[in-house]
Nucleic acid binder design. Structure first.
Lengths: 209, 209
DNA sequence: TAAACACCCCCATGTTTATGGGATTGAATC
DNA sequence: GATTCAATCCCATAAACATGGGGGTGTTTA
């Protein structure tokens, strides 16, 4: 038996999902609330839902803030977002807040059911659009390094800077003179149009090198 | 009709997928290779597969390096990884290299088919285990800020450092004296156990603050 | 073969940081 | 009502950094 809760301010949607799940074998959906504020006092450590279906656009506290609180208090609950929003910001904020699934509101009831089953078996149900956006997040992190204007040695120097080493220590690490380190750093500043190692470190860690 | 290619060094697996797809309505799988090296010379801009199923553990060039090359030359091809590996590093490297899907080798043929259909319709097929690991990547980015030892003001100073500002400019931005900036930075260094702004910037951008 | 570039080293000068001291105020905790 | 603590300022010094010059050596390439 999978115990499910739902937080959704649209009564019709909420009841429709709840009724549907309660008609399925192996499902029981007794937690049903229209806001985070009304849900929280009703969560007791003894009897918790395994899965919480969460709307994002709620009256009062947002679904994202709500998920942060819930995950902090009851990390064992699996949260699955159920929202109309498909913009990357909402998606990433939700995942960072602790959601392990993200279904758009146009998801058929049957797929909500299989999504929940997937969730409790260790998967992460996501609407196709959502999964694609999540994947694209990584793709943007990968397209680089072809255009980096820095030479191999200069990149090594940058690594030293990011590690917080002084010129002297970078020189030791690369077994070159501190003067050579200085020379390279001048080149790096010129090529990157920056004027201090702080900016180099920032650019580097943002993947802009 | 969906045109599919496959790069897989295990002849049996490759042929089995190829034959299966060719038996399906709307599928044609004519590109079939056992290494990146043998695939590349056979990709011509005029006739490209829409989808390439890629093994990771290939003889010669790795699937990940191969995907980088393919995506650079033919960004319109959708790549879906087909591998036994389910460790986070392989997953993230693949996604960064341009994969838009990631199926484990235990995926049934029918699901490979529906995965490809999902792919061309704008989704991202992922085995449940894989999707979960991708989602967990974001979750780890979210659990923070409760334990940050820095005061509100100190965090503002850190932002200034990350932006590459000098003490003077930070002082101006926050309309306080440069001496106060110095004082705060001393506190920050003490609290974070670091000895230079480089380390502060690194920690900050890594989400460790 | 000359230009271009990566890489190596040295010097000088001024600025910025790191680190130690110290002092005062106000808000919060106890 | 004492203590704690963030926040504000001041001073001093040594170390690290930024920036400008000046030399060289190799390798690649047009």
């Amino acid at each position: 038996m999978i115990f499910v809760g739902i937080v959704e301010d649209d009564d019709q949607i909420r009841k429709s999902i709840q009724d549907f799940l309660n008609r399925q074998n192996g499902f029981q959906c007794n937690w049903s609330f229209n806001s985070i504020e009304s849900l929280l006092p009703n969560l007791k450590a003894e009897v918790l839902p395994q899965v919480l279906i969460m709307d994002l656009g709620l009256p009062g506290m947002s679904g994202i803030d709500g998920m942060k609180i819930i995950k902090e208090r009851y990390p064992q609950i699996d949260l699955v977002v159920f929202s109309v929003y498909n913009d990357p910001q909402k998606i990433f904020d939700s995942l960072c807040a602790g959601a392990t699934g993200y279904l758009l509101k146009n998801t058929p009831l049957e797929e909500i059911k299989s999504g929940i089953e997937l969730l409790v078996s260790g998967g992460s149900p996501m609407s196709p659009q959502i999964a694609r956006k999540v994947v694209e997040f990584f793709a943007s992190r990968g397209k680089r390094e072809i255009t980096s204007p820095l030479s191999a040695k200069e990149k090594e120097i940058v690594v030293g800077l990011v590690d917080g080493l002084s010129y002297k220590l970078i020189a030791d690490r690369l077994t070159i003179s501190i003067e050579t380190v200085r020379f390279h750093i001048k080149s790096i500043y010129r090529k990157l149009h920056v004027h201090g190692k702080a900016e180099v470190i920032s650019k580097s860690l943002r993947g802009e090198i």
